[in-house]
């Protein structure tokens, strides 16, 4: 099963490599990884999506917690949460395709953020399955380039992950 794990870690040199190294060292899978500083510049917030059974994911959270730089770990998938991913996708856009892409883009609430005579670059935000669906709707033939941010997640309600 897919899990979204949020990690608050010290914004120290090497901290990220410890997290990434842990995953490769223990053969845990990383589907996506995002990381950036929080409002407190001494802390980074990292979101990793992984696939594994409950036992593996329990080990992942325990092992993450063991890292000295890690302040807190939460498996967001255990509760109500919101996940978002940003995608920028460059598409061949000629002739009739231009209108078609525009329509699909509107349906998915994407935005065209760059235009040339032969290409559109579309920005789309949503959960990963929505981004997957957009790619599927367009078909691979028109896709020139895809860049996805990886998943960021946050718990619903007033629950927060903080020091």
């Amino acid at each position: 099963m897919r899990h979204i794990i949020s990690v608050l870690l010290e914004n120290e040199p090497g901290a990220l490599s410890r997290v990434v190294g842990l995953f490769s060292q223990r053969q845990y899978n990383i589907e996506s990884l995002t990381v950036a500083a929080t409002e407190d510049p001494t802390l980074s917030r990292l979101t990793v999506t992984t696939i594994g059974n409950d036992r593996v994911v329990e080990q992942i959270t325990k092992q993450l917690n063991k890292l000295v730089d890690v302040v807190k770990v939460v498996d967001l998938s255990e509760g109500d949460h919101i996940e978002r991913e940003l995608m920028m996708i460059k598409l061949k856009a000629n002739g009739q395709m231009r209108a078609e892409i525009k329509r699909t883009c509107d349906i998915f609430r994407g935005q065209i953020i760059d235009v040339t005579p032969n290409a559109y670059t579309v920005q789309l935000i949503g959960d990963s399955s929505k981004l997957d669906a957009f790619i599927a709707a367009l078909g691979t033939a028109s896709i020139m380039e895809v860049v996805r941010s990886g998943v960021s997640g946050i718990a619903r309600g007033e629950k927060v992950l903080s020091v």
């Binding site: 040199p13 090497g14 490599s17 410890r18 190294g21 060292q25 000295v68 730089d69």
Partner: peptide, 16 residues
């Protein structure tokens, strides 16, 4: 050495 030792230490430090 931080990279080499990372999987075999409890923690490591680099003095800055």
């Amino acid at each position: 050495m931080l990279g080499i030792s990372r999987p075999i230490v409890k923690h490591n430090f680099s003095v800055q």
